[in-house]
Nucleic acid binder design. Structure first.
Lengths: 136, 136
DNA sequence: TAGTTGTTTATAATTATTCTAAAGAAGATT
DNA sequence: AATCTTCTTTAGAATAATTATAAACAACTA
């Protein structure tokens, strides 16, 4: 399903050579059924756990940023001291469980269309994101 | 209008003794007509400029956090490496000009009501925030 | 006024992220 | 497959935002 060939394709599309380290990163990022929300540090630790091989933190940062730039990862807007990413790159919104520091995807129909009825001259809308914070 | 007495009241309500430093912080935060968006560092520099007196960074952090906890300041959700605050504590949304790194308030009627049609058992909604990113 | 408690401050510690430069690997050329 | 060029990896240093620390000091209480 999510094969090594696909990973290599994604890497090449992102102007990255398919190295062993980057394939390992892809393995953790894309070889899964469900959406995956993570911080760089989560990912860094998972790579060690899942592949048994260590990849340097700098490489994780570089690769994730390249994927983000290419649109293979979505950056999630939360006020936290860490940056979150999402393998679900479609336009969608999030719950954020403040206590557990966990992200949950919201389908677009769970929120409904959002009409922004104001514009700023010379600027256009790049994204519209809803973040619903949850408490107990 | 926004008098020293009000500042002292806000401080007392936040369980803070009204010291010279904290009054200076209030002066910059609350003695203004329009909504004020800022980072701690903005505020830190403005205090020096506006009052001529220096307040240590730690005091600025402590005071802002106490006001935030008490509800006199609103924390804004942006994915940036800095935390933003807003003196407009009413429920409202924002534009964020990515290029200029500037926040603009959106009135609630500019966005319209947002219906969240999904719930998570045991959790309740704490806040719903829309962030509209702008590009050129 | 004295005594208790809270506050300020400079500085150190911590954390997330980016930078750097040397050693190594990938891809192209023969 | 040997060589060359270019890209990559990596550890560790650098940076930046934030939080913690502890000694000097100011506010409140009795």
């Amino acid at each position: 399903m999510t094969s090594r060939q696909e990973f290599i394709e994604k890497l090449r599309n992102s102007s990255l050579r398919p190295t062993k380290q980057r394939i390992n990163i892809c393995e953790v990022l894309f070889n899964r059924d469900k959406t995956f929300h993570f911080t760089i540090n989560d990912l860094f630790n998972l790579i060690k756990d899942k592949t048994g091989e260590k990849v340097s933190l700098a490489t994780v940062y570089n690769t994730v940023h390249a994927f983000h730039k290419k649109g293979y990862l979505k950056e999630i807007t939360i006020n936290s001291n860490q940056t979150y990413f999402d393998t679900n790159v479609t336009d969608h919104h999030h719950f954020f469980d403040v206590k557990e520091e966990k992200l949950i995807d919201l389908k677009n129909e769970d929120v409904g269309p959002i009409e922004i009825q104001r514009s700023i001259p010379g600027k256009k809308i790049k994204s519209v994101e809803v973040l619903v914070k949850l408490e107990d």
